[in-house]
Design a protein around this nucleic acid. Sequence first.
RNA 1: CGGGGCGUGGCGCAGCCAGGUAGCGCACCUGCAUGGGGCGUAGGAGGUCGGUGGUUCGAAUCCACUCGCCCCGACCA
Length: 570
Amino acid sequence: MRTSNFLLATLKETPADAEVVSHRLMLRAGMVRQLASGIYSWLPCGLRVLKKVEAIVRQEMDKAGALELLLPGVQPAELWQESGRWKDYGPELLRLKDRHQRDFCLGPTHEEVITSIVKNEIRSYRQLPLNLYQIQTKFRDEVRPRFGIMRGREFIMKDAYSFDVSEQDSRHAYDKMYRAYERIFDRLGLDYSAVEADTGSIGGSFSHEFHVLADSGEDKIAFCKALNFAANVETIALPAPQHGRAAPAQSMEMVETPGVKTIEQLCKMLAVPASKTVKTLVVKGTQGLTAMVVRGDHELNAVKAEALDSVSSPIRFATSKEIKEIIGTETGSIGPVGMNIPIVIDHTVALMSDFVCGANQADRHFTGVNWDRDLPLAKVADLRQAEDGDLCPGGEKGETLTVRRGIEVGHVFQLGRKYSRAMNAFCTNDEGEKTLLFMGCYGIGVSRIVAAAIEQNHDERGIIWPESLAPYKVCIVAIGYHRSEKVRQASEALYQQLDDSGIEVLLDNRNERPGVLFSDMELIGIPHRITVGEKSLEKNEFEYYGRKTGETQTIAAPDLLAVLKSKFEI
RNA sequence: CGGGGCGUGGCGCAGCCAGGUAGCGCACCUGCAUGGGGCGUAGGAGGUCGGUGGUUCGAAUCCACUCGCCCCGACCA
């Protein structure tokens, strides 16, 4: 391809809306354009990268024995009513009506459709195991789309579904997918980690998420190097600490805390560390409201809270109106002392003494509060999120956890019989009995991977593609293409030679200043650059520049192809 | 959903408070010049100021409604 025939939609200035680096660079490099909130068009340069990701995913899925198909994006409500998710899915499911006023939705995922196909086609265990996948556009009406392609409403996903006659076979299919995912992310050239994940509302036996490690990630991942353990922080159970509770040293006092709404403000005003305070969060329970108490410097783990019988699932926080009506105070001054709704406290809170908490009166807190003496010890549970430095739950020698941020790009899941049961997907086993199928589902965020790869591979000049993802492998920058016949001929000949060798090459033959050519090629992140100019042509040489290494080298013309190939990673 | 912010040529912004000729930079087009890192120079084209309604002699500017986009949100409950 020549840039003279290409839509090279690069931007010199950064659009004001773009916050994270991948979003900025995708816009600046002319890869995507926003059409509506969370909805993007893919321009040629971006599409080439997207196709690279797709191709790798497709190859490895095929190699793992999965079969590709393509399912509809628009799905009838009946199917979702059958599985129960028409009610359960909530506003993220975009619903619409056709001209006959029949209900449909835009598929946010395809368990229903795939199950309906399989239950009609599969009769016997002899037809199994089966793993079907597709690469398709999905739509989830996110509350708050953000970070460009990273959390869009419309996005591209590879989703696979396995069907087996036994739990053991299903486990087999799961392991196979897990290994295929490792190969995929290796080939994509990403720094990633497979972590134990929450099976969430879907239930199921186990699940792993694949995360690309990046500071802009929305998830927190805990690692334990010593034990080779990694998990999403929300899944990590934290056992009760073994030490006891210190004896009370202070008496309980009410103090004025005007304007204090946050733990930070509270600590500042009273000059106490956050670990001496507690925060009380009010959530909707199965009967009325319930208070959850964690230490001031800890975070409530929504998954753990949800798991409690007394808390409604999905978890919902009480509104300020409800708090005012039932507890009779403003947010910011809530505490367990004299609380008139059920209380659950975290393990660590149960072991605190002389702590600070809200007094359930506006602008007042208590100091020197102690369990048993000032208030009865409440129900104790594991409520908080694991943090950097916490003890590794599997460790016995005091191993600690390190927490980093990750972007979830893949998820493998055992579904068990949830959907086959709801939708009556049976087959006959080797004893002639009808038996419910065991399912697994396996997702990869194809479009998100493009953004994640940029988060991990960029510098101040632009994107630095891993070779496996680059829109073109080599670019030829022709300096003086329109002025020098020599340059034009040499660059065209080189272009032809590379193209004939099956190398994806972009010839920049625009009538622009050299600086413009160089910086655009660096912005869009082409891994290898050959510069053709009169100076070097006189010596029958080309100049090489490596985007990732910054390496420059002059290469004698006859050696060019061989030397260039030696620089390729793949 | 709550809170905040922003909609003015393709992009980035000023003008709005104090109503009166719509402006700047980049990009674009035409010359000249230049040619190894987003040069220089001369000229030019392009906007019913998100939409609707109102106030006014007069609205980008004031008022009301509305649409769109962005950011923040247990941190405290």
